[in-house]
Design a protein around this nucleic acid. Structure first.
Lengths: 195, 195
DNA sequence: CGCGGGTTTGATGATGCTCAAGCCCGGTGG
DNA sequence: CCACCGGGCTTGAGCATCATCAAACCCGCG
């Protein structure tokens, strides 16, 4: 059950297998049905969630009632709301399973004692947060410097299989454009490839 | 020299004065001339920088040669490139002093040993990174859900005095709009306030 | 006085949004 | 087995917002 998490940790830091095994007791394995909300607007996030199988989205609903997707979380990544977990402040985000999924879930308390007891885990955690920050900065820059077509092409490079798994209107929301615009971008590209 | 940093640390975590004094030795105080670049595209960031006085901007130059400002750093905030500092990868950002400034500078090595030796500093650091992440997420959401006028008004709330200190074209870049658009937004608002 | 950086203004056009309608396709019930 | 949903995707028309280009303007400074 823990293999994927071990793998991922080893990508970021060096740790012996015996040390890795220490963390098992902190996590619970759960199966999640498609459509389940793990986190709702206004709730304080009490768990961190590692995706083993399936796919999640993190989104917000703005004052006009429009959804904005901040993140898709694939197996091997974390989801939930890191900021709310760490700060203890209410989250404004929803986290929803887009497919039947399996997760490793860890409570805030367990998380904290893990950070204290397992130095390699502390390092791992730091790098995770750092990565989130970089990814979000990249998305901000993209929002400001790139047109709809390039945003879409860029997404295709980074998540080649996302199209098969997520309805287009969610992809449009992730990219910050209307569904219609995304549809037209796709038509354009399809035409080009034929001619 | 260290007072402002002490103050800021106390805002985030609880620490005794005698502990706070421990960190003095790790920092160097420097005066910086307006226009100085502390960090250039392609360099690895080797220092973290705490702003005591003055104002900095962090920006990137995209493939079309257009500048995009990610951040303004005021006294009491950090600047530089956290992600590059932590990861050791080259930064794509420039950091420039917009006014004559004073900073506390700490090398990466000193930073790391400080994190090991001063637990309160580790906490402080975590909260800093967390805050950067939240701020960047907020900016991303704003980029996708709000028009030029609201972006500008929002900036005025959060940085009331920035207009007096930064040329308008940089503010436009920070907000992701052209200088002309910002100018027109301002004219509109000025008219409304008169009538 | 004249130069230069920054700002304003106007004209024009591109990009992407909104609204509205139609289409496609898989699922359901008669 | 077929008719008819309904959700998601596409298409078109018109429009709003904002970018671009170009020119004028403003003002502090040598």
């Amino acid at each position: 059950m823990m293999e994927l998490l071990y793998e991922k940790i080893k990508e970021y830091v060096t740790a012996e297998d015996q040390d890795l095994n220490l963390i098992d007791a902190y996590f619970q394995h759960q199966k999640i049905k498609k459509g389940t909300l793990l986190n709702k607007d206004g709730e304080v996030t009490r768990h961190a969630i590692f995706v083993v199988k399936g796919l999640f989205r993190t989104f917000i609903i703005d004052e006009q009632g429009v959804e904005h997707i901040l993140q898709f979380s694939m197996p091997g990544w974390w989801t939930g709301n890191l900021a709310s977990l760490l700060s203890g402040k209410p989250s404004r985000f929803f986290v929803e399973a887009l497919e039947d999924a399996e997760i490793l879930i860890i409570s805030k308390d367990a998380w904290n004692s893990l950070l204290e007891k397992a130095p390699f885990y502390l390092d791992y955690h730091r790098k995770l947060v750092e990565r989130s920050l970089i990814a979000t900065q990249d998305r901000l820059l993209e929002a400001y410097s790139v047109d709809a077509r390039k945003k879409y092409l860029h997404l295709l490079e980074t998540f080649p299989d996302i199209l098969q798994r997520v309805p287009q209107y969610m992809i449009a929301s992730y990219l910050g454009m209307s569904r219609e615009t995304l549809s037209r971008v796709r038509r354009q590209l399809a035409r080009k490839n034929k001619s």
